[in-house]
């Protein structure tokens, strides 16, 4: 099948995407950038642009989209040097019409723009024991335990994390320390520490995060909060956990 590398649609400016290409499982593959030129359409996102390249120009291009609505956290990548959710990035933001895409750093590279976040996030969830710890046996036929409405809202606020990995890709500690749990892990602990269902004490949390791969690894550069697509209050939650952990 012969198709031009230029995709003509209708009038709209031409945009050029320079995309990192590499398949580590193919010995013949060499890391390189490949350029694709598209005609921009109104409201075009990187999801739309990459899908267009994949279906019309290059059937071998790999990337990860699932919900394409900023909800599932699959499509984080480095867009002109900044880690972002590709599905929520509009091509119109880039005045010079040039967009460079690279895979998210600090995760195992699958191919092209695809990385393995799932196994890392599962390991992190196991490490911080990302679940309610309670000795109480809940009888699910009985009326549920009451929770103060404001407390429920505060927990929800921290529960909004989508494990996209952008906080880790933005984190200098993480680049130095492979086992650093990052803002995603510290936020998770902060979330359970305010949940009235969870009986863990500060001492229990210290066992999980009281070291340089946990709360004391953070250098407070706050790239995590700057780039978090859910705008989680990471700076204040990390500071909150650090104050608690220092006291233990």
């Amino acid at each position: 099948m012969n198709k031009s590398h230029t995709y003509d649609h209708d009038s709209g400016r031409k945009i050029t995407l320079s995309i990192f290409r590499y398949n580590p499982s193919n010995p013949a593959s060499e890391p390189s950038f490949r350029e694709y030129t598209l005609t921009e359409t109104p409201g075009m996102t990187l999801y739309i642009a990459l899908t267009k390249i994949y279906t019309s120009i290059d059937h071998d291009l790999s990337f990860d989209f699932v919900c394409r609505a900023g909800i599932c956290g699959s499509c984080a990548m480095v867009v002109n040097g900044k880690p972002r959710l590709a599905c929520k990035t509009l091509t119109s933001e880039f005045a010079d019409a040039r967009i460079t895409l690279m895979p998210l750093p600090t995760f195992k590279h699958n191919k092209d723009l695809s990385v393995d976040t799932g196994n890392w996030m599962n390991a992190m969830s196991l490490k911080v024991e990302s679940w309610i710890h309670s000795k109480e046996q809940t009888d699910i036929s009985r009326i549920e335990k009451r929770v103060d409405p404001d407390t429920a809202d505060e927990i929800f606020e921290l529960d909004r994390c989508i494990e996209c990995g952008i906080c880790l890709a933005s984190c200098s500690t993480r680049i130095m320390r492979e086992d650093f749990i990052g803002a995603v892990g510290l936020n998770r602990v902060a979330r359970f520490s305010i949940d009235p269902h969870d009986e863990r004490t500060d001492e229990d949390f210290y066992e999980l995060i009281g070291d340089d791969n946990g709360i004391f690894g953070c250098m407070s550069l706050m790239g995590c909060e700057d780039h978090c697509p859910k705008h989680l209050p990471l700076q204040s939650r990390i500071a909150y956990m650090r104050r608690k952990m220092v006291k233990v």
């Binding site: 699910i140 036929s141 549920e144 103060d148 927990i155 269902h197 969870d198």
Partner: peptide, 16 residues
């Protein structure tokens, strides 16, 4: 109703 109460015990921060 049992499902939602189980989820509450597992920490789903249902609006209250």
């Amino acid at each position: 109703p049992k499902a939602i109460r189980e989820l509450a015990a597992w920490g789903v921060p249902w609006s209250r």
